[in-house]
Amino acid sequence: MSAPQKSRETPSEARARLRRAARLAAVQALYQMEIGGRGASTVIREFRDHRFGAAGEGEEFVEADEDFFDSLVSGVVERQAVVDPAIDGLLADGWRMERLDATVRAILRVAGYELFQRKDVPARVVIDEYVDVANAFFEGSEPKFVNAALDRCARQARPDEF
């Protein structure tokens, strides 16, 4: 986004943009943790030191809500023993989290964490945001799968919003 476009952003639009970037980064961080076998604190520090930056710092840096990113990654790690079984229970018979693509697993874990633990974010926003993240990684059926899984998850986690 160019500087003139950013200056026309409302505060809520800027917050949404920074949170969107944090969600994408959280999915990338969880993927990196799983594939590389690295801990949350190491990966969070790496993202803060080498991937996040302020606007205008260069293309290699991403402007994101770093505190929200930290809370997502740390929250998934802390609550994974609750989130994973909840998501497993929503998958079709014969499917388990372990059978899913690592990126899809990361998307479902972060989104599941938000749905079950971050009641400050409306369920429909969570679903829309993570379907967009899925679309950033996949062109096939995965975004539809993520949408369906998160819809079931949201209806279980927050029935009052539906």
Rank of each mutant, 00 (worst) to 15 (best):
L91A: 12
F69Q: 00
R17N: 00
A81E: 11
D49F: 13
R99K: 13
A102H: 13
E46Q: 15
L91M: 05
Y113V: 02
E142N: 11
E66H: 00
A92I: 07
S7P: 00
V104F: 07
R15Q: 14
Q80T: 12
L100P: 05
V133A: 01
A136W: 02
V62Q: 09
G112V: 00
L115S: 00
A92G: 11
V83T: 08
D84A: 13
R109F: 03
V104I: 09
F162D: 13
M1L: 04
V133K: 01
V126M: 00
I107A: 10
G89I: 04
D67Q: 10
F52S: 00
A29L: 02
A92S: 15
F47Y: 14
A25I: 03
T42S: 15
E59S: 10
S12T: 14
R99F: 05
E9W: 12
G94V: 12
Y130L: 02
G58H: 13
N135C: 06
A106T: 07
F47H: 03
V43F: 02
A106V: 11
G39Y: 13
P4N: 04
V82W: 06
F47Q: 11
A123W: 01
A26Y: 04
R124Y: 06
K119I: 06
P143W: 11
L108A: 03
V121N: 14
R38F: 11
F69L: 08
V125A: 09
R45D: 13
R124P: 00
E98S: 09
S141F: 03
I35L: 05
V146A: 09
Q32N: 15
T42Y: 13
V73D: 08
Q28N: 09
S12M: 12
P85Q: 11
E63N: 08
S7G: 06
P122W: 00
S41M: 04
Q117N: 10
P85G: 07
E66V: 06
F137Q: 11
Q5L: 15
R23H: 08
A157C: 13
W95Q: 15
Y31H: 15
V133W: 03
R45Q: 10
R152E: 11
A22V: 12
I35W: 05
G37V: 10
A149Y: 01
A25E: 06
A54H: 04
L100G: 12
D120S: 08
Q5A: 15
G89Q: 07
Q28D: 02
I107N: 04
P4F: 01
R15H: 11
G36F: 07
V125I: 11
A26M: 00
E139R: 08
F162N: 03
A123V: 05
D101W: 03
P85H: 10
E60G: 07
E60W: 05
R23V: 12
K144Q: 15
R155G: 06
V76P: 08
D88L: 04
F138P: 00
K119Y: 01
V133Q: 02
V104P: 00
A111Y: 03
D88P: 04
F162P: 07
A157V: 08
A29P: 01
L108C: 11
V121E: 14
V83Q: 05
R155V: 10
A55L: 12
H50Y: 13
V110P: 08
F52D: 02
N147T: 09
F138W: 09
A148K: 03
E161W: 12
G112W: 01
L90H: 12
A21G: 08
G56V: 10
E142M: 05
E60T: 09
A136I: 05
V110G: 01
F138E: 07
R152H: 14
G112I: 01
A14I: 04
R158C: 02
